[in-house]
Structures are given as C-alpha cells and as structure tokens.
C-alpha cells in the first residue's frame, strides 16, 4: 500500500490504500460534525463558509475558517514535502511518516477530548484545526504517492469522475477498457468505504464519543504495519531464494527484483 510510488503502484495497491484511508476520513469527518458541529475534511464547504462570513463581516469566523483551510493546505504541503525529500533514502519511511503524524494528531484529539475537554470554543476550534491538518496530511499522502489517483477525504472529485466514467461506459470501446474499469472500481470502493466509515461513526458516536479517534488510529496503524509486514516477508523470501541460488551479491539481487516488480506493475 505505502512502499510503492506513482507508476509502480498496482490497482490493488490503490484500492487497499483508498478503501482504508477513505474509511478513516469518513469516520473523522462525521465524528467532527457530531462532536464539534463542523466538518473536518469538507474543504469546499469551508471555502463557501469563508465567503459567506466575509460578506457578513464576521472577523472572528473569517479568521477561524481561514486558519482551518490553511491547516488542511499545510497538512498536504507537509505530507508531500516528506514524500519528495525522503523518498530516495527510504520509500517506506517517507510514505509512513505522514500517517504517523496523522495518528499522533488524532490520538491527541481523542485523548484530550476524553479527559480534558471542557467544551470551550477555543478548545473546539483547536481540536478541529488538528483534525483538518490530519486530513490534509492524509489526502496529501494518498494523492502524492498514487500520482493523484487516490484522494480520500472528500468525494466531490470522486463523484465527478464516476459520473464521467459511467457515461463513458455507454460505449462498448470504453466498457471493455481494463484501465477505465479499474479506475471505476477504485473510485466506487473509495466512495463506498467513506460512506461506510461515516455511517459507522454516526452509529458508534453515542457509545464511543472521543474514543472513536483511537479506532481510526488503529485502522491507520494497520495501513502502516501491513506494508512493514509485507516488506519483512518479502525480504525473507528474497534472502531464501538468494541462498538457494548461491547468490553472493544480495544487494544487486534485491535491486533486480525491485526493477522486475516495477516493470510488471507499469
């Protein structure tokens, strides 16, 4: 899910990453709406609110909404900054680090909300700001490593693309195009997963409250650990094959395997 980049990613990689992160985004977005009465990933809506508050001349609300939009932007900025600067050194770490930061933000929101939250407006706005930053990190990461194919925190683009794809499927030449079918599968799984996360968040909100952010963090941890596990398993098999084939230069053998894998995926 995380260790591959841009064109070396398969459809399966994108679907796995898309469904899991869309599920968490759906949960966080509805969780923030129920707990704080504001969305944490619906940036289009925040732009509309910003415009309406500018018209009304409400400086306080303008400042708050402006800072939320800025933090979503900054989250995406930080995420891609980490990816492009660390990618050459350690791809897995470069892709996992934004998710680790996101988990830290969400666990902080959950922990603070559970034990210290006194429901003041300032606390509400800071916790929302952290969630928007976390969603920016997530969207920036998934979009960056998937060559802008996977975006999971809002569904405007996804729904637009699905509309376009389904209209294309009225023609047989597009209907039989594997790449387009794959894209439709990916987008549908993202939309369904987001919706499922949102519904689950709505049902569990009464029982879990702020603890729902621990559940979200757990799902994100699965995304990180899954690849770590796959990396270890893969390394084990490569080393075993190398021993069987009596290959002395293990480094070049690993490199050869990686190139082979990338060429198959592309």
């Amino acid at each position: 899910m995380l260790r591959k980049y841009n064109n070396s990613r398969s459809l399966s990689d994108n679907i796995k990453l898309g469904t899991l992160t869309a599920f968490t985004a759906g949960m966080v977005n509805i969780g923030s709406l129920l707990l704080f009465f504001s969305f944490s990933s619906n940036i289009t809506g925040h732009y509309a609110i910003l415009a309406s508050e500018i018209v009304k001349g409400n400086f306080y609300q303008i400042a708050v909404v402006f800072s939320w939009i800025f933090l979503f932007f900054f989250g995406s900025f930080v995420s891609n900054l980490i990816v492009i600067h660390l990618n050459q050194k350690n791809t897995y770490l470069a892709h996992a680090l934004p998710l680790i930061l996101e988990i830290i933000c969400l666990i902080f929101v959950g922990y603070y909300g559970q034990f210290y939250y006194r429901e003041t407006l300032m606390e509400t706005e800071i916790l929302l700001a952290l969630m928007l930053f976390a969603m920016g990190l997530q969207n920036g990461l998934t979009a960056s490593i998937s060559n802008f194919t996977v975006k999971t925190t809002h569904l405007t683009g996804t729904t637009t693309d699905l509309g376009i794809l389904f209209s294309m499927f009225t023609k047989a030449e597009y209907r039989n195009n594997e790449a387009l079918k794959g894209k439709a599968k990916l987008l549908l799984s993202i939309a369904a997963s987001y919706l499922f996360g949102a519904i689950l968040s709505g049902f569990t909100y009464m029982y879990l409250g702020f603890k729902m952010f621990y559940a979200v963090s757990l799902v994100l941890t699965v995304v990180i650990v899954y690849d770590l596990y796959k990396l270890r398993v893969k390394r084990f098999f490569i080393q075993r094959n190398a021993r069987r084939l009596n290959i002395e230069n293990l480094g070049s053998y690993i490199k050869l395997n990686r190139e082979k894998e990338e060429s198959i995926a592309s």
């Binding site: 704080f36 009465f37 504001s38 508050e53």
Partner: peptide, 9 residues
C-alpha cells in the same frame, strides 16, 4: 451553555 463549530452553534 457552550458554543460549538466556529462559534455559530
């Protein structure tokens, strides 16, 4: 009483 959202609830 408490305020929620951006101070709009």
């Amino acid at each position: 009483w408490h305020m929620k959202g951006r101070g709009n609830i």
